[in-house]
Amino acid sequence: MGFKLLSKLLVYLTASIMAIASPLAFSVDSSGEYPTVSEIPVGEVRLYQIADGVWSHIATQSFDGAVYPSNGLIVRDGDELLLIDTAWGAKNTAALLAEIEKQIGLPVTRAVSTHFHDDRVGGVDVLRAAGVATYASPSTRRLAEVEGNEIPTHSLEGLSSSGDAVRFGPVELFYPGAAHSTDNLIVYVPSASVLYGGCAIYELSRTSAGNVADADLAEWPTSIERIQQHYPEAQFVIPGHGLPGGLDLLKHTTNVVKAHTNRSVVE
């Protein structure tokens, strides 16, 4: 069995187990497998329904001669939608809004960016022009300005110390501490036991640490421990890039980060 097929099978099995364990909360999309990078042309966006009122959005972007996937989250909030992270750029984010209108038909009224990198804030200006209120932590807003990236308009308070959590509509926002970046936030959907790890969490097929220019490698494993301790009931975990899975993604990420750190020390 090929690795790609095995990865998709694991996603399907995880979703099936969740649907059985929580039949009222989960209505997993039966329309197909989780979209992969090879299936999404740059400039297009796919939506994948995880649970009743919960979707991931998947886009792709060219970077350094390669094409990478990027995940975000959409959560229903009454007759409105909360968006977590842009679709990595203005063109993708405009396509995301169009796809949401086509498939869901509810307005996106608020959006949260989970850290300051372009795959999370690139497209904020498109959201703002569409009347979406954009939010991020003060740290993310400051770092985005320093980096020359787009800056969300509103500040999220109460997320300055490791372990801080605040309720934001249908989700809980959690600051686990520094990891992929010093400002990275985690998003949890309690009604569906869905954990969105953003770039602080890796997919299972990833074996290298990737972009760690703004990471705190020493603190990252401790931050992941905080996530595990705060959300032990999480059933569906979405990484910032690639295929979702279960809580095993947290341990896998820790292993990859520690291996990278150990290699760096040896070198």
Rank of each mutant, 00 (worst) to 15 (best):
M1G: 05
G2D: 15
G2F: 11
F3V: 07
F3Y: 05
K4N: 05
S7A: 08
K8S: 13
K8H: 13
V11M: 08
V11H: 12
Y12M: 11
T14P: 13
S16D: 13
S16Y: 14
M18W: 06
I20K: 08
I20N: 15
I20F: 08
S22N: 07
P23L: 09
P23H: 07
P23M: 06
A25R: 09
F26C: 10
F26H: 15
D29V: 08
S31I: 06
G32Y: 15
G32F: 15
E33T: 11
E33N: 11
E33P: 08
P35H: 14
P35R: 10
P35G: 10
T36W: 07
V37L: 08
V37I: 08
S38L: 08
S38E: 08
S38V: 08
E39Q: 08
I40Q: 11
I40E: 12
I40A: 10
V42G: 12
V42N: 15
V42D: 14
G43N: 12
E44A: 11
R46H: 07
R46F: 13
L47A: 04
A51K: 06
S56P: 05
H57C: 02
H57A: 02
A59H: 09
A59Y: 04
A59F: 03
T60L: 13
Q61E: 08
Q61H: 09
F63L: 09
A66E: 11
N71T: 11
G72I: 00
R76I: 10
D77L: 04
D79K: 14
D79S: 13
L81D: 00
I84E: 00
D85L: 00
T86R: 01
A87D: 00
A87T: 02
A87E: 01
A87L: 03
W88L: 00
G89C: 01
T93N: 02
T93V: 01
A95S: 11
L96G: 02
L96K: 01
L97E: 02
L97P: 02
I104E: 00
I104F: 05
G105A: 15
L106K: 09
L106I: 14
P107R: 14
V108P: 15
V108Y: 03
T109H: 14
R110I: 05
R110C: 04
R110V: 14
R110M: 05
S113H: 15
H115I: 00
H117N: 01
H117E: 00
D119H: 01
D119F: 00
R120S: 14
V121H: 01
V121C: 11
V121F: 02
G122T: 14
G122K: 15
V124I: 15
V124A: 08
V124D: 03
V124G: 08
D125W: 09
V126F: 15
L127C: 00
L127P: 02
R128W: 07
A130W: 12
V132K: 03
Y135H: 06
A136S: 12
S137I: 11
P138C: 14
S139D: 12
S139N: 13
T140G: 03
R141I: 11
R141T: 07
R142E: 12
R142N: 12
R142F: 12
L143Q: 11
V146F: 14
G148F: 14
G148C: 04
I151Y: 05
T153F: 15
H154K: 06
S155K: 10
S155V: 15
S155M: 10
L156T: 04
E157W: 14
L159P: 06
S160D: 09
S162T: 11
S162G: 13
G163M: 06
G163H: 09
D164P: 06
V166A: 07
F168T: 02
G169V: 03
E172R: 03
E172D: 09
E172Y: 05
F174A: 02
P176V: 01
P176N: 00
A178D: 06
S181L: 01
D183I: 01
I186N: 03
V187H: 00
Y188H: 05
Y188W: 13
V189I: 06
P190V: 05
S191R: 07
V194Y: 02
L195Y: 01
L195T: 01
Y196W: 02
G197F: 02
G197D: 02
G197W: 01
G198T: 04
G198P: 00
A200D: 02
I201P: 01
I201T: 08
Y202N: 07
R206H: 14
T207D: 15
A209E: 08
V212I: 10
D214Q: 15
D214V: 08
D214Y: 13
L217V: 09
E219C: 04
W220A: 03
T222G: 12
S223M: 02
S223V: 11
S223T: 07
E225D: 13
E225C: 05
I227S: 04
Q228E: 12
Q229S: 11
P232T: 07
E233V: 13
A234T: 09
Q235G: 07
Q235C: 05
F236Q: 07
I238G: 01
P239A: 05
G240P: 02
G242E: 03
P244E: 03
G246F: 05
G246P: 05
L247D: 06
L247E: 09
L250K: 01
K251W: 08
H252K: 04
T254G: 11
N255Y: 15
V256Y: 03
V257E: 02
A259G: 10
A259N: 05
A259I: 05
S264M: 05
V265C: 08
V266H: 14
E267L: 08
E267A: 08
E267G: 11
E267K: 15
